[in-house]
């Protein structure tokens, strides 16, 4: 899209906003005009972006985003140090933490294996995972239930099992509130596989 009709700084702002995920040129234009009309909001947004960029880094242990290194979860002595939960993205840690069910530690891979896109183990935080296995008895795979997620789980299981570590993965099945009638056969098959005694 051509932004030549706008002054250069405004055009630059629209271009920068339109590079963000899920934002097209029209939405970027609307956001840019809103920010110009709300100088306080613009100021606080700019400050928040700068502060996050300057202070947030990856935890040297779990590779999650953090403002202190090691992060609060890795430093917490009340958490079970012998269980690691492997997730794809930092936002998955937040999703799991919301449940308050998991009391162990996390490891963020920052992606999953995708041979077709050229993403191999070297592009993920696999070596970092292998370096922190001392005292770990169980590794829980909490990766997305996609072909790539499954491939990553299988790959990590092949690496970890010979080290005598129990490798588990979160259950696959029906979502809470979902109708059985509308579930696909793979989900129902997985749900049946993972059935439990009442």
């Amino acid at each position: 899209m051509n932004f030549l009709q706008y002054p250069r700084p405004l055009a630059d702002l629209i271009v920068a906003l339109s590079r963000l995920p899920g934002i097209g040129p029209k939405t970027a234009g609307r956001l840019a005009f809103y920010l110009l009309q709300q100088p306080e909001a613009a100021e606080s947004l700019a400050q928040a972006i700068r502060e996050a960029k300057d202070t947030i880094s990856q935890c040297s242990i779990c590779c999650n985003f953090t403002d202190v290194d090691p992060c609060g979860i890795c430093e917490n002595p009340s958490r079970d140090q012998s269980i690691l939960c492997v997730v794809e993205q930092p936002r998955d840690v937040a999703a799991l933490e919301k449940t308050r069910e998991f009391k162990g530690l996390y490891h963020v891979l920052h992606g999953c294996l995708s041979p077709m896109e050229g993403i191999g183990p070297d592009q993920l935080k696999v070596q970092e995972l292998l370096r922190r296995l001392e005292g770990v008895r169980e590794v829980v795979m909490a990766l997305n239930p996609t072909v790539e997620g499954e491939a990553t789980s299988l790959y990590l299981a092949k690496l970890l099992k010979p080290l005598g570590i129990m490798v588990t993965r979160i259950a696959h099945g029906l979502p809470v509130g979902g109708d059985l009638e509308y579930a696909d056969e793979v989900t129902i098959a997985r749900a049946l596989e993972g059935r439990r005694q009442l």
Binding site: P115, L154, Y155, K158, D184, E185, V186
Partner: peptide, 24 residues
Amino acid sequence: SPKESFPHLWNDYDRTLAATRVAE
């Protein structure tokens, strides 16, 4: 509506990799 989901391509790393190479 899926007709076949090929679960064996999900459960084995080598089969996943071979199928990925076929698809690519």
